[in-house]
Computed example of a mutant assay.
Amino acid sequence: MKDKTEVNRIAVFERVIAVLQAIQTTPVASTSELREQVLPDLSLRSAQRYLKGLERAGYVSQKLDAGWHRGDARYFLTEKAKQLFGVQG
């Protein structure tokens, strides 16, 4: 039987993969869109912090556009993340 720590680590890994896949397949992968799709258990502020962590780790980059709601950045996969999925370009 798996211990609780191992199960938690797997859950964290699966969440990261789900977020990266959502960014890859969502035309406008904004904070609110990603929260709705794959982070529904997080508040908007927690989702922002989570995505900021993925940005600091080098898996995503964000762009703030002038017309967007405050704090609703748009996310893109970095080359590091694209390599995980074998994405070209």
Rank of each mutant, 00 (worst) to 15 (best):
M1N: 14
K2C: 04
D3T: 09
D3Y: 08
K4W: 00
T5R: 05
T5W: 03
E6G: 13
E6I: 08
V7A: 10
V7Y: 00
N8E: 10
I10N: 07
A11C: 05
A11F: 04
A11S: 05
V12W: 08
F13A: 14
F13R: 14
R15Q: 15
V16T: 12
V16Y: 04
A18V: 03
A18N: 11
V19S: 05
L20P: 03
L20D: 14
L20H: 04
Q21S: 11
Q21L: 11
A22P: 12
Q24A: 15
T26V: 03
T26N: 13
P27S: 15
V28K: 10
E33R: 12
L34C: 03
L34F: 02
E36N: 10
Q37T: 15
V38Q: 01
V38N: 02
L39C: 06
L39Q: 05
L39S: 06
P40Q: 13
S43D: 07
S46T: 07
Q48V: 09
R49Y: 06
R49K: 07
R49M: 06
Y50R: 01
Y50S: 06
L51F: 04
L51P: 05
K52V: 06
G53Q: 05
E55N: 04
E55R: 03
A57G: 04
A57C: 07
V60K: 02
S61E: 09
L64T: 07
D65W: 07
D65M: 10
D65E: 11
G67Q: 10
G67H: 11
W68T: 12
W68P: 01
W68M: 13
R70A: 01
G71N: 02
G71V: 01
D72V: 02
A73L: 14
A73T: 02
R74C: 09
Y75Q: 00
Y75F: 11
Y75R: 12
F76E: 07
F76M: 02
T78V: 08
E79L: 04
K80N: 12
A81V: 05
A81F: 01
K82W: 13
L84I: 12
L84M: 13
F85M: 14
F85K: 15
F85Q: 15
V87L: 15
V87N: 08
Q88S: 09
G89I: 01
G89K: 09
